[in-house]
């Protein structure tokens, strides 16, 4: 009786230790624009995504020819994930944007988007490298189970 309780305690103790604040709470990272222009287009897209009721946190990264929108869905609305994704995708496609648009509600994509943004701000990355990282994130997203 006692032994297995201990085992479970040990197993539970293996939970990840991380800088997981991004996932734990609303991070609301600023939009990042990597195409050299400063027209605030990425910021506009972030506003549009934030305006959807069921979405509470967004990270937008606009690269040279790719646009990534990562977002979190309110938990009780996660049953309708597919429709929310379609809706968001449609709205962004309508905002002209000539880039390849990728929207994702995946925690991993959100996490990587924030990591990319933080590395950008810390000055670890050139724009070129950041664009490369962005397409790596998008490749990750397209991977199927």
């Amino acid at each position: 009786m006692k032994k297995w309780a201990l085992t479970i305690l040990l197993l539970a103790g293996c939970a990840p230790e991380h800088d997981g604040t991004v996932i734990l709470e609303t991070a609301d990272p600023d939009a990042v624009q990597l195409d050299g222009k400063h027209d605030g287009f990425a910021e506009k897209i972030k506003k549009e995504a934030d305006s959807i009721e069921t979405i509470y946190d967004t990270a937008v990264i606009k690269g040279k020819d790719q646009l990534l929108v990562a977002y979190k869905v309110r938990h009780l609305d996660r049953f309708n994930m597919k429709e929310i994704e379609k809706d968001l995708d449609k709205r962004i496609q309508e905002m002209e944007s000539t880039e390849e648009v990728v929207v994702s509600s995946d925690y991993k994509i959100f996490l990587e988007a924030v990591r990319l943004k933080e590395d950008m701000e810390a000055g670890h990355l050139t724009e070129e490298e950041a664009n490369k990282r962005l397409s790596e994130i998008i490749k990750l997203k397209e991977e199927m189970a």
């Binding site: 479970i8 539970a12 990840p16 997981g20 925690y107 996490l111 990750l140 997203k141 991977e143 189970a145």
Partner: peptide
């Protein structure tokens, strides 16, 4: 439920420290 919580913790572990997405972390 507890087994599922452990599973959830394991999958977040893989998401955080390895290149797995929510889609691919099941395996």
């Amino acid at each position: 439920g507890l087994v599922c919580i452990i599973g959830q913790a394991v999958s977040y572990f893989f998401i955080f420290f390895f290149n797995f997405t929510e889609q691919t972390v099941g395996n």
